[in-house]
Computed example of a mutant assay.
Amino acid sequence: MAVSVRDTASRYRGRFAPSPSGPLHNGSLLAAMASYLDAKAHGGQWLLRIEDIDMPRVAPGADRIIMQQLLALGMQWDAEPLWQSKRLPRYQHVFEQLLAQDRIYGCACTRQQLPPDGRYPGTCHALRLPAHQARSWRFRVPPGTECFEDRWQGPRHQDVQAEAGDFIIRRADGYWAYQFVVVIDDGDQGISDIVRGADLLDSTARQRVLARALGYRCPRVMHVPLLCDATGRKLSKQNHAAAMDLSAPVATLNHAWQALGFEALSVCDINAFWRAATPRWAARFGILQTCRRDSA
């Protein structure tokens, strides 16, 4: 069923949320492009969030490099960027709320004590450890199966308690866990649609369970394919993927566009690329564009 921009433009808010551990590479461009196109096809907003909560992995200046890369490819965000490192008091406030509600608990387990599949067996679930004995803090996952529709991957379901168990929201090193802060940020920013790489698909059920516990509405999700190297490994900064080439921006955009399953666009500049790509994206995902105010 086609969705009209008239119905979605006023409430569509998407985001691109890179970790500043290095420059963007061709793999991260796929997620950036998909999230940008989906927001523009809906006539909505596209936000930029710098996910620098994992401080040991942050590369100095990488956030600014990422912003320059996006602008060089014609991707302009629609509001002031948000840095997670500036929101620590907010995360602490939510943590204290969950603690008061007995939705979280301290855990003394080490990584070596977990089963090979990573599922937490609930060892500390009922121990009521004093705070000074807790290595990490876990969210009490309620029973039940989490079901959702992924706009690229199709129907998904997961029994989070059975398959993942109570998950960490504050790590043993004192840093907030990704699963915790991303839910708070998406909720506080009013994100309606999350478009990101398929490597994060498995996190979605956990994030939806936590979002509901915090009183947030769960965003729609789309998990796009990953770009892999010649050995089949996902392109990533950890695997030393090279920064994307900005010397030929149209060719770089077309490379990502084709990796998303589209035919290369015969265009002469980046503005023409986005003008041509946006309606093609809209057509593929049944987004009517009759009410768009511009063709960009």
Rank of each mutant, 00 (worst) to 15 (best):
M1F: 11
D7M: 04
Y12W: 12
A17R: 06
P18R: 15
S19C: 07
S21F: 08
G22N: 03
L24S: 07
S28F: 04
L29D: 06
A31W: 02
A31K: 07
A32H: 12
M33N: 01
S35Y: 01
A41D: 05
G43Y: 12
G43E: 13
Q45F: 09
Q45P: 03
R49L: 08
D52I: 06
D54F: 02
D54G: 04
G61Y: 01
D63Y: 14
R64E: 12
M67W: 03
A79C: 02
W83G: 08
W83Y: 15
S85W: 01
H93T: 10
H93C: 09
E96T: 11
D102C: 08
R103P: 09
I104W: 05
G106A: 07
C107W: 13
C109D: 09
L114E: 09
P115Q: 09
Y120T: 13
G122D: 01
G122F: 02
C124I: 09
L127H: 09
H132Y: 12
W137L: 07
V141A: 10
T145V: 07
Q161A: 12
E163A: 13
E163K: 08
G165L: 14
I169V: 13
R170Q: 03
W176C: 00
Q179C: 14
F180C: 13
R196F: 09
G197K: 04
A198P: 00
L200C: 03
S203M: 06
T204Q: 13
T204E: 12
V209I: 10
L214H: 15
M222G: 05
L226E: 03
A230K: 14
G232Q: 00
L235I: 03
S236M: 02
K237Y: 00
K237L: 06
Q238T: 01
H240D: 08
A243E: 06
M244Y: 11
A248V: 00
A248Y: 02
A248N: 04
L253Q: 12
W257A: 04
W257Q: 03
L265N: 00
V267L: 05
C268Y: 12
R280T: 01
W281T: 12
A283T: 10
G286S: 03
L288C: 15
T290C: 10
R292V: 14
S295I: 14
A296P: 07
